[in-house]
Amino acid sequence: MPTFFEEKQLVTPGELLAEGEYQAGENTYLESGKIFSARIGLVDCDNKKVNVVALRAFYAPKPGDIVIGSVIEVGFNGWTIDIKAPYTALLRASDVLNRPFKPQNDELNQVLDAGDLIVAKIASYDRAHDPQLTVGEPGLGKITRGQIMRVTPTKIPRVIGRKGSMISMIKQETGCQIILGLNGVVLVTGKNTADEDLAMAAIKKIEDESHTTGLTDRITQLLKDEKAKREENKN
């Protein structure tokens, strides 16, 4: 029952991680009693469960996830939404209108048109069906202002930080509202574009350096330096 890795070691697909009493966690697979890595990432072992924190992955939809997507098509009784996943998602008209949808009264493209961005929750998804979205909760719906950026979906937990420490720090320092779509799309809404740019620069830095330690301190420093610079320019 040995393991063949050091904590936080960079592994490539197919690397033997453990044998015997261990459980295969995220981004690993079990074959004839041996656990191998399935993606490039950093290994960690938590209570006999071997996980690989992937450095590169795409978004796989999961019911309950908050995602940010764009409308690609206005259909008969709903919209087709691009959520940056292997599948396009569906949003039903009755869900948005909050009442039964009547084709003779409702013009769907006046509610949401192609190109509009929405924050939505994945209502259902399984192997046989494309994901279905819902906007029937507070905070969800059409995006009217702010800027969006894309982050590798696997880095989202790092942007959030331990118990949300990282994201709340950025929010506080920049005064921006930030919505993290689990599909790797981030919405930043601030009082002005300079604030938004600063928050986005911080998130970009987190993405680039996500697998290093002491990141929270460096981000705090970055935000403080930028702020000081701006103060100087004002004077």
């Binding site: 697909p13 197919g14 697979y29 191998f36 399935a38 590169r56």
Partner: peptide
């Protein structure tokens, strides 16, 4: 393929 983040058994 590995760089694109697709799960693989081995290279």
């Amino acid at each position: 393929l590995a760089d694109s983040g697709i799960p693989m058994r081995d290279l």
